[in-house]
Design a protein around this nucleic acid. Structure first.
Lengths: 149, 149
DNA sequence: CAACTTGTAACTACAATGATTACAGGTAAT
DNA sequence: ATTACCTGTAATCATTGTAGTTACAAGTTG
């Protein structure tokens, strides 16, 4: 009775973060899958989306992926859009074909749509203001705390 | 490959708006279904959720529903939560069991979670600032424009 | 050539959605 | 009290997205 936005998004962030932190090593789909804890084919599928969106560089036959842009130039919104978790401007679905013979039926869609866009926009703006660089820094921050214990 | 938040949300808003605009009439599930253009049982199911959340008054055997609160006291966030479209604080799903032997794996969840909460919070805040009263007014506004043409 | 990789397709199990039918149980008017 | 209507709810169904798995073609490197 309840849905969630696909974990492809969080996995996408994980992948990009790990590619950066492992930049001196080789980030193959198997390596990444080992950290995410899933199947390499799942990772390759998501990598394909990230590649298509111009976020990473990967080549058939050649092991490993690299970031295609600067760390600070990749926002979570970029990842969010790349992994196709939500239809463009359709985070909320509006019920189709309301009755045009009813005052509410013939106007509700036009009333609701901008409200939904606004809510969706607020969400996306937050994602736009966080970069993979921020994530990498925070992972290191958390790691320091972890080690101290 | 893409998901949306259930239309139960938009239908819930439609229902509440129509109950208000039709307050001098009887808003039975069949009547409401006629405006939304769906099955009465679907409406009754959503009405059950709205009732459970204290937004409307309905009684078994008695035709029609009424708002249980003042128009201006029902926000879209109330409706959103009432119709159970999203797990609480889980709009985004995070991939489970990342590898604890990897710097990224053991920290990424704690890094990502607050970011997701923040994005979700921004979305909910927008919904919280719109009431059914606003929706009703806008429907009438749109209706006026419609008639003018 | 051999051993590795990426890129995909095909298939699976599972869950949410939205519609539909059916019916138990409540209410009200004649 | 019988009839006619309503709400509440369960069961079923087709469709779709998710996430994992296996398999393999095609590219690359030593």
């Amino acid at each position: 009775m309840k849905m969630s936005i696909s974990s492809r998004f969080s996995v996408g962030i994980h992948i990009l973060t790990l590619i950066e932190i492992n930049k001196d090593g080789v980030s193959s789909s198997e390596y990444l899958a080992g950290s995410v804890n899933t199947n390499p084919a799942v990772i390759r599928k998501i990598m394909g989306m990230l590649k298509k969106a111009g976020l990473i560089k990967v080549q058939p036959g050649i092991a490993g992926a690299e970031l295609a842009k600067d760390l600070s130039d990749i926002t979570l919104l970029d990842v969010y859009k790349a992994v196709n978790v939500v239809k463009d401007n359709e985070l909320f679905s509006i019920h189709e074909n309301p009755n045009p013979d009813c005052t509410v039926g013939r106007n509700i869609q036009n009333t609701i749509e901008p409200l939904f866009f606004s809510a969706q926009g607020a969400l996306e703006k937050v994602l736009e203001n966080v970069t993979i660089e921020d994530v990498v820094k925070d992972v290191f921050e958390k790691e320091k705390l972890h080690v101290k214990r």
